[in-house]
Each structure stands twice: as structure tokens, then as C-alpha cells.
């Protein structure tokens, strides 16, 4: 409805675009995820450490993408990305939390192998 309607290049989110940022984002996140994959296929660290380390890597990757790819900030044009991200956090915590709570009781009650034992057998 504003003037920017007719000139796509003046849209604020288009103004934020940066080829260098995108390439950097691609390289960094690919490296991070590749590292996580390598850790898990080679069983380089103990299972519980692995969970912690890969989660940490994932968090860093999310941060990098939020900054370099989505350009999250509080400006009028970008605030929806930021709000969506923040609204999503409690959901994430609830889903993972409730799942972990269930598995916590489940291993004791079923014959399923805990990730511990499974990983050791595989090695």
C-alpha cells in the first residue's frame, strides 16, 4: 500500500539481503552440522556427552541462521521473525521436556535398550 509496493527493491527485507552473509551462513552452518554428524557416526565421545555437544552445536547453528539468514531484530519489518522465534521457544521446551519425562519413566518399565547400552553394543 506504500510506495515500496511498486519498487520491490526498496522493501526493507530486501534491503537487508546480503550475498556475503548468505554464503557465510551456508558455510558456517554446513560445517557445524557436518561436525555434529561426524561426532555421531564415529562415536567419538560418550553418548551423554554426544547429546550435550550436538545440542550445543544445534543451538549455535540456530543462532547463526537467526542472525545471518533471517536478520532477526526489533525493527518494524523484522519483528515478526523475532516474535515468532520467541513464541516458539516455550513450545520447544514443552515438547522436548515432556518427551524426556516420558522416556525417563519408560526405560525402567520396558525392555527397550537405553541409549547408553545400545551405543556401547554398537561399538
Amino acid at each position: 500500500m506504500s510506495a515500496s509496493h511498486h519498487d520491490p527493491l526498496s522493501h526493507p527485507e530486501v534491503q537487508l539481503a546480503s550475498g556475503r552473509g548468505y554464503v557465510a551462513n551456508f558455510l558456517v552452518t554446513t560445517l557445524l552440522m557436518g561436525f555434529g554428524l561426524w561426532l555421531s557416526v564415529t562415536h567419538a565421545v560418550a553418548p551423554l556427552t554426544l547429546v550435550a555437544v550436538t545440542s550445543g552445536i544445534a543451538a549455535v547453528a540456530v543462532g547463526v541462521q537467526a542472525y545471518l539468514l533471517l536478520h532477526m531484530n526489533l525493527s518494524e519489518a523484522q519483528i515478526w521473525h523475532t516474535v515468532a522465534m520467541i513464541l516458539f521457544l516455550p513450545l520447544f521446551v514443552v515438547t522436548i521436556g515432556l518427551t524426556a519425562w516420558m522416556f525417563h519413566g519408560l526405560y525402567a518399565r520396558t525392555m527397550i535398550m537405553s541409549p547408553h547400552i545400545g551405543a556401547f553394543l554398537h561399538r
Binding site: L106, R109, T110
Partner: peptide
């Protein structure tokens, strides 16, 4: 609706509290 999904597998042997 985000916090009820386990009712589809009550019988999977989760703890009574769950």
C-alpha cells in the same frame, strides 16, 4: 492441543504420573 499427544499411546507403559 500441544500438550495432550501421549493419550494416543497411554498403553506404551509410560509412568503412571505421566
Amino acid at each position: 492441543s500441544w500438550g495432550v499427544w501421549l493419550h494416543h499411546f497411554f498403553t506404551m507403559a509410560a509412568a503412571p504420573s505421566v
